[in-house]
Simulated scan of single mutants.
Amino acid sequence: MQDAVDVALRYLDLSFTFTAPAAVLDGDRLVITLEPAALPDDVRPFLVERDLAAIHTVIGELVNGLVPVLSVDLTHPAPADTSEHEHVFGLRPRFAAARDQSVVDASVLARALPLASPEATALCERQCEDLAARRRRKPGTAQEVRRLLEGSARFEETMPVVARALGLSPRTLRRRLTEAGTSYQAMLDEVRAERAVVLLGTMSVEQAAGQLGFAEAASFIHAFRRWYGTTPSSYARSVLRP
């Protein structure tokens, strides 16, 4: 589990977190802290809870068991009903706390991952490194387009819509992306391909197709084969769920 945490933190910029998580070993405790300073106040509580719940869920799925949570602190006030919090974390969080954090028993780091695969790990790390390198090569407008696409729910935004969001004309946006060595369609495919791998870990091919904005599963399967050289089902069986 320790290796999985190290990889996750190394490629945190490729995730869908809105906060900045950090993990620190404090004796026999693992302290997971979230830094949400840049989040708007009206959505901050939701996004902090979302990210912290996601971290706990992923850890639980990796070790195939309950996460030994010792405490959960949240800086926002307590809601009227905390039953969902208790269901997710296994205890009632402390609200109006000094920081947003979760403390778990550090013994979880020593647990073996039941579905660990050295081959899948090596493949995923290579993909992460490639994606990180590609992001570093896309400054300026291209990076802004990527940011907007990554925040898209179902990729329904057309290039004119994205151009308007950036205060540009479609023609100017097209020219700037060409100067950066890419295009709107190429960036859309890139972000879709990245999210497809994430979605296939938790849902069916048909569900993933809908989330990615494809009208039908056949179109998604065709695109996925173009991106990865195999079908979504084969990829999920061999890499995500070996």
Results as ranks from 00 to 15, higher is better:
7 V>R: 15
8 A>N: 07
10 R>V: 04
13 D>R: 15
13 D>H: 13
14 L>T: 06
15 S>K: 05
18 F>T: 09
19 T>S: 12
21 P>D: 01
21 P>M: 02
21 P>K: 01
21 P>W: 08
22 A>Q: 10
23 A>V: 15
24 V>M: 11
24 V>S: 13
26 D>F: 02
26 D>I: 00
27 G>K: 08
28 D>F: 02
30 L>K: 03
30 L>T: 03
40 P>T: 08
41 D>A: 15
43 V>G: 04
44 R>W: 02
45 P>N: 10
47 L>I: 01
51 D>M: 10
51 D>V: 06
52 L>E: 07
52 L>S: 06
53 A>R: 15
54 A>H: 12
56 H>Y: 09
57 T>L: 14
58 V>F: 06
58 V>I: 13
59 I>S: 07
60 G>L: 09
60 G>C: 08
60 G>M: 05
65 G>F: 05
66 L>Q: 12
69 V>H: 07
70 L>D: 07
71 S>T: 12
72 V>Y: 04
74 L>S: 04
76 H>I: 01
77 P>I: 02
78 A>Y: 02
81 D>S: 03
82 T>K: 07
83 S>V: 10
83 S>G: 11
86 E>H: 08
86 E>F: 05
87 H>K: 15
88 V>G: 06
90 G>I: 02
90 G>S: 05
92 R>T: 02
94 R>I: 01
94 R>S: 00
98 A>Y: 07
106 A>M: 08
108 V>F: 13
109 L>Q: 06
114 P>R: 05
116 A>H: 14
128 C>P: 00
129 E>C: 03
135 R>L: 11
137 R>I: 00
137 R>F: 00
146 R>S: 08
148 L>I: 15
149 L>Q: 09
152 S>N: 05
154 R>Y: 09
154 R>K: 13
163 A>Y: 13
165 A>E: 14
166 L>Q: 08
168 L>W: 02
170 P>H: 11
170 P>W: 12
171 R>L: 06
174 R>H: 13
174 R>N: 09
175 R>I: 02
176 R>V: 00
181 G>Q: 11
185 Q>F: 14
185 Q>A: 15
186 A>S: 12
188 L>K: 11
191 V>W: 05
193 A>Y: 04
199 L>I: 01
201 G>W: 04
201 G>F: 09
204 S>Y: 04
206 E>G: 11
208 A>P: 10
210 G>T: 11
212 L>C: 07
214 F>W: 01
216 E>Q: 08
218 A>K: 13
219 S>A: 09
221 I>H: 00
221 I>R: 13
222 H>K: 11
222 H>R: 15
224 F>S: 04
227 W>F: 11
228 Y>L: 02
228 Y>A: 03
230 T>K: 03
231 T>F: 00
233 S>R: 12
234 S>H: 08
234 S>V: 10
239 V>C: 03
239 V>N: 03
